[in-house]
Amino acid sequence: MSLYPLFARPRTVQQAAQVLESMSSGVVVIAGGQELMPHVNHGVLQPEVYVDINALADLKGIREDDGLVSIGALTVHRDTFSDPLVAEKLPLLVEAMKLIGGGRQVHNRATMGGNIVAMHPLYDVVPVLLTLEAQVEVVRGAETRRTSLKELMADPRHGLGSEAILIRVLVAPMAADAGFAYEKLKSSGGAYGSANAAVALTVADGVIASLRLVIGAVADRLVDASEALAFCIGQSWSDALASKVEHCCAGLIDQPLSDHQGDGEWRKAMAGVVAQRAMGRAVARAVAQEGR
């Protein structure tokens, strides 16, 4: 805790990584500031060093890279969800990101990297990226590492935001005939999500052929329900299947959040509701694609 913190504005990723490596503690990486500043303003967080990464060219831009969609960590939400490449290849991400709260002001400033690094259970981007089995590129010291987001999130020593820098996200394009949906339940226009579900699936001959579904905002950690929902493969969508999905997904939540958004019992049940609704919409989309 320092009353007079220091500031650094590195020009390259290498410089930035060196700055982070040279500091023992109290360092924060800052880009859009949307996640960090509320804590700074209230004195909850009193960093000793701010490392401003806005000048790092490697963290900018959206492009295709070796068959993957690469989204730089500094890309703000509005640029991501209005990008034609993202719209074509990752429509699930667009659907979810448009539902991010805070209004235009936040969409204009909040970055992909900030959203991921926050690792906030109520946020909307990570459930989608996990559903799409995204990879991330991370620099720590001299090392550049590409890893799955899932693996990174499971590592309590990932050091993102203080020791390591997220460079970009890499996502394989969704199948052109994929069904997808992002279902977000919130109590009111200004509330954070109480339960959300991201789903991407394919349908062949009217039955579900593949499926990925991740549930967020109901527990401290996001819940990947894909394996548990394996019973859906080979099934066509029906009320009976919907209620099985609902029951299954609610059952996956053993330690639900209980906060201002709602109590644990409700949260658990809502995990099932959003999962089932997301899947219903996704199947309908896929079936419509198939019918074309």
Binding site: P38, S187, S188, G189, G190, A191, Y192, D259, H260
Partner: peptide
């Protein structure tokens, strides 16, 4: 519908900002 000021069992106020004290937005 949603505005609510809550406390824990020791009497500490849990509702400390607009993240938790949710007031109507235009769409509401």
């Amino acid at each position: 519908l949603f505005e609510d000021i809550r406390f824990d069992s020791s009497g500490r106020q849990l509702t400390r900002g607009f993240m938790d004290y949710v007031m109507p937005r235009c769409e509401d």
